[in-house]
Computed example of a mutant assay.
Amino acid sequence: MKRRKFILSMGLACIAAILLTTLVPVVNNYRRLRGKKLLQEPKFLLSICNSEAVIALGKIYREKQIEIFSELKLLKLISNDNSFEQENITEEILQRKIIDDYKKGDTVMVSGWILSKTEAYQCALFSLGKEK
Rank of each mutant, 00 (worst) to 15 (best):
M10E: 14
C49G: 08
M1V: 13
I99Y: 09
K59M: 09
S116I: 04
Y121S: 01
E67P: 07
N80Q: 11
L72C: 13
A13D: 09
K5L: 09
Q40K: 10
C123F: 03
V108R: 03
G35S: 02
Y102W: 06
I15D: 07
Q86H: 08
A56Y: 07
L125N: 00
T90R: 02
L39T: 02
R31I: 10
L75E: 01
G112S: 08
S9L: 13
L33P: 08
E131S: 15
K103Q: 07
V24E: 10
L38S: 00
G105W: 05
P42C: 06
P25R: 04
T22M: 11
G129E: 05
M109G: 11
K64L: 15
V108F: 03
L94W: 01
K37S: 09
Q122G: 02
L39P: 00
I18V: 15
L8T: 15
I93G: 03
Q86V: 15
F6E: 15
R34L: 06
R62Q: 06
V54E: 02
F84C: 06
V26L: 12
S127Q: 00
Q86Y: 06
V110H: 00
Q86W: 04
L23N: 11
M10C: 10
E91V: 08
N28V: 14
L39D: 01
G11A: 06
I48P: 03
D106K: 05
L74W: 02
E52H: 12
I55G: 06
L23V: 09
L19V: 09
V110P: 01
Q86M: 15
G58E: 00
